[in-house]
């Protein structure tokens, strides 16, 4: 097993004495081509790792902004195979690429076949918001076979036993949710995130990245003080959802990404 691109990007940021910035966008919104371009814009403006969302009809960990984007992407005809295209596009920039997906589309595609295509596209692995390691036998095997990262989530409610077992099953990094809730901007990050990151560090040496509710440069900077990576989703997606036209969306997206990138670089 070799270090993934994502692992290397996280290590390089650490060598620079900073946290990495991870930006989420769903493939297929506002169009497949438009989403690929948007992901490139993230990288051009200082995002280190792109988390490529696979739109799903029943995204129960997502708030209204990402739900809206996912619904419109599905209405626009986005298909599972489009995440592999996005993976290739992001990989070509040299940035790290991960796919974030609910489990059923992978299950339907076949975990091993999905993993093979991910690896072929240069994607480092999967973030699985509704799959806990207890139910992940297929994915554990497929990710081993294709040398992919397994990013499971931990939450403020996770018991010590589950922090231990979940991090033991993880590869690449651990995704710590900053709060109890779904995706979407919040006015403050709160103390739960730093407490959770401290608990995770007691049981694993893997990098710990924090997401959920992080939307401003100040919040990014705050999280960057104690996490190895900061994950921003809804705030970026909102730029595209609110834009009157795709070009404006890309411009707003680039400006926000550049601003957030300052948060991990000061």
């Amino acid at each position: 097993m070799s270090a993934s691109t994502v692992s290397k990007v996280l290590a390089a940021a650490k060598d620079d004495g900073r946290a990495a910035l991870i930006g989420y966008l769903p493939v297929g919104f506002p169009s497949v081509e438009g989403s690929l371009r948007a992901m490139e814009v993230l990288v051009e403006n200082g995002v280190d790792i792109v988390e490529i969302g696979l739109p799903y009809t029943d995204p129960l960990m997502d708030g209204p902004v990402i739900q809206t984007a996912a619904t419109r992407a599905l209405e626009g005809g986005v298909r599972v195979a489009d995440v592999f295209r996005a993976g290739r596009a992001v990989s070509a920039t040299g940035a790290g690429a991960l796919v974030m997906t609910y489990w059923n589309p992978v299950l339907r595609y076949g975990a091993d076949r999905f993993a093979a295509e991910l690896a072929g596209a240069g994607v480092s692995g999967l973030i699985t918001p509704d799959l806990v390691p207890d139910e992940a036998q297929d994915w554990l095997e497929a990710s081993e076979a294709h040398d992919l990262d397994r990013v499971f989530l931990v939450a403020p409610s996770s018991t010590p036993e589950r922090l231990q077992s979940t991090t033991a099953a993880s590869r690449g990094f651990v995704y710590a949710t900053a709060l109890m809730g779904v995706t979407g901007a919040r006015t403050s990050v709160g103390s739960a995130a730093s407490v959770l990151v401290g608990r995770v560090r007691e049981v694993t040496d893997l990098p710990v990245c924090v997401g959920l509710g992080v939307s401003t440069r100040e919040q990014v900077a705050e999280v960057a003080r104690f996490a190895d990576g900061v994950i921003v989703g809804s705030a970026l997606v909102r730029c595209l959802v609110d834009a009157p036209d795709p070009d404006t969306g890309l411009k707003d997206l680039g400006a926000l990404a550049a601003d957030l990138a300052q948060g991990v670089r000061r």
């Binding site: 129960l60 489990w103 918001p129 509704d130 799959l131 806990v132 989530l153 939450a155 409610s157 996770s158």
Partner: peptide
């Protein structure tokens, strides 16, 4: 495996809910 009827059932949820 936990909570299975044959192959069916299980617990496909965000980790945040597992403790509950």
């Amino acid at each position: 495996r936990i909570g299975r009827f044959g192959d069916y059932g299980g617990r496909y949820v965000p980790e945040a809910l597992v403790a509950a």
